[in-house]
Amino acid sequence: MIAIVDYGAGNLRSVVNAVHTLGYRPKVTSSPEDVLNARAVILPGVGAAADTMANLKALDLVNPIRRFISDGRPYLGICIGLQILFTSTEEGGWHECLDLIPGLVRKLPPKLKIPHMGWNQVKQRISHPIFNGIPDDSNFYFVHSYYAEPDDISLVSGETEYSIPICSILTRGNLVATQFHPEKSGEVGLRLYDNFIKMALATKISSLHAD
């Protein structure tokens, strides 16, 4: 089962539509059991990271998501779904997040228009199955006012310039997280979802607990 986590985020439908159009039947869910039993978890997001954390807590989803990711299972976080992986965020005063990726989420510098809104290029820093068939420097759709800064910069798989270099895609094993919205990024965005799902379905569940 591909679980798309429903915690009240407004753009859930677009994510479901994108996965549907690729021929998969995802389950939209807010159940902790579903998250733990899923082959892959997709966490969409718009809005504020602190609200998202509060919603996930209210639904008892924090621990299941934490465990799912710690077990090395396939997770795709989008926008806020990327930011909540970090230690804490500056948005709306400092708030603690999941702390699965050491680092901070900071406000974009006020040099350019905020939000960073529109199509911008993603420079691929590593070779990874998530980029299969996606040309380097492809344009993806962004809309955000905060950006994530991992302590370990080797996790930054793709970078985007917006007065400073932004971590626009981050990978660690089966974990993939994007600052942009692939469900709003036309054909290359759909391709990214397809790559993630193929990656997830190819992951042997038994191997995840091998250690």
């Binding site: 539509n17 759709y141 709003k184 990024s185 036309g186």
Partner: peptide, 11 residues
């Protein structure tokens, strides 16, 4: 809007 969002993957 529902019908459009099913086939159009942009903002």
């Amino acid at each position: 809007v529902e019908r459009i969002s099913e086939e159009v993957f942009m903002p």
